[in-house]
Write a protein that binds this DNA or RNA. Structure first.
Lengths: 237, 237
DNA sequence: CGGCAGTTTGATGTTACTCAATTTAAGTGG
DNA sequence: CCACTTAAATTGAGTAACATCAAACTGCCG
């Protein structure tokens, strides 16, 4: 029998929410058999969920990069955060039918969907899952609050450094990094929409960073030349 | 026997997390008896919890106003949100020992503390509490994401309108409002720190709002003259 | 009456945005 | 492999939004 469980065919790292729900042993096959979970592949640029869309499933990103965002009436958009392999789209979606944000694939992605009802009943039965969820919830809240502080108080340089710093840390938790070179599929426009600047200004700031030999972002790779300086610029408090 | 339960001596509105934990009938007296919950009064301006502070309790604001914030090394501070009566300090604190933010009393406040262990065991036993918590969690996430979008994409006028709009809605859910006059204890500096502007600029924008007869903020009261215009300015998407 | 915290106002400086032109990079089909 | 096309990044000039600094004004309380 072919194993199509969400996380068997794609790299996993650490014990996240996904692992907790599936259990790390045995239970995996049952999921596929029960039909309460599925796999999907989505090409780069395609929207995965829309704001206010109701879904009986919750989503976990298995492979590639995505991002959550809010689109404003006049076309402006704010990227709320980037999704990396293993990330649950949001803790709220475990309980709420509708998403309050939209999600797009940044690269080609694999996503795993799990029936909400099934996850909820497992949640009731297994305190391990509750703990994993609580952990994710805290971390979401902390990141959100830090983002608010960065957007409210930081200068352009600081905001961009803050974003790059956060992302490199999350990437490093999932990949082996050699020579401070991080896989980095963002365009400057994504950086701009994430930190509330224009793409033109992001280009200028990145130019400065390049000249100062702090970081260099090109060709889908981020090279960090001066971690200390990046931290100095981008670390809150 | 005197009833000192958290929410018996202070106004409650709707069925929030606090009510769910205590139950709406009978159980109230047992809390006081068991000693797992307490009341505290804190004067205006005093700090209630500090970032990274560990606490065996979780906090609910019973009366007055407070605010959550992050303080940066160089003195800048970002107000993450305001706490109104009935508000849990944060969902994360139900599971995490340490706060990732600080909290100050804006006015004189009454706060209720509940032993985390007790809340957790009630949580495991009663799905009603889980649902209340999930609700709070979703709402925190939504508000946080909207704040991020507002800070990233909105102009000064829009941000301030957004803040005032949010607060008036939350105040109205807890008080009877006559003539569009809302109790409003914020100083302009608080508005500034919440929306990432300087107090001077906030003063100018509020001056414009006053001249245009949109809103007027003074003497601890916010008068909304033109709700439609406020919504036009401050509503996302 | 004096002192203090908060607000208002003006003048000036800085940061980041806008618009537009140019360069670079990445495909695509012949 | 090379012209052609297209998306992304860079650069410059001018402008708008917001910050900074400093002074004056207000209301409140001892």
């Amino acid at each position: 029998m072919k194993n199509i469980s969400p996380c068997a065919s794609c790299p996993r790292y650490g014990v996240g929410f996904c692992d907790a729900v599936l259990g790390r042993t045995g239970a995996i096959a049952s999921g596929a058999a029960g039909g309460w979970q599925h796999h999907r592949v989505v090409p780069a640029g395609r929207q995965i969920v829309a704001r206010n869309q109701a879904s009986p499933d919750l989503f976990v990103l298995c492979n590639g990069w995505g991002f959550r965002f809010l689109q404003l009436a006049d076309g402006r958009r704010q990227i709320l955060g980037f999704l990396l392999p293993g990330d649950l789209f949001s803790v709220a979606s475990v309980f709420e039918e509708r998403f309050h944000f939209s999600v797009k694939a940044l690269t080609d992605v694999q996503i795993s969907t799990m029936r909400r009802t099934e996850v909820q009943s497992r949640l009731a039965a297994d305190p391990t899952i509750v703990m994993a969820l609580a952990e994710t919830c805290s971390s979401e809240a902390r990141c959100g609050d830090e983002m608010i502080a960065a957007l409210g108080q930081y200068s352009a340089e600081e905001r961009i450094a803050f974003l790059l710093l956060n992302l490199t840390e999350r990437i490093a938790a999932r990949n082996v990094i050699r020579e401070q070179q991080y896989p980095f599929p963002l365009r400057q426009q994504h950086v701009a929409d994430a930190v509330g600047l224009t793409a033109v200004h992001v280009s200028r700031v990145l130019g400065v960073f390049r000249d100062r030999r702090v970081v260099e972002m090109s060709n889908g790779v981020l090279k960090v030349h001066d971690v200390a300086e990046l931290k100095r610029l981008g670390s809150l408090s």
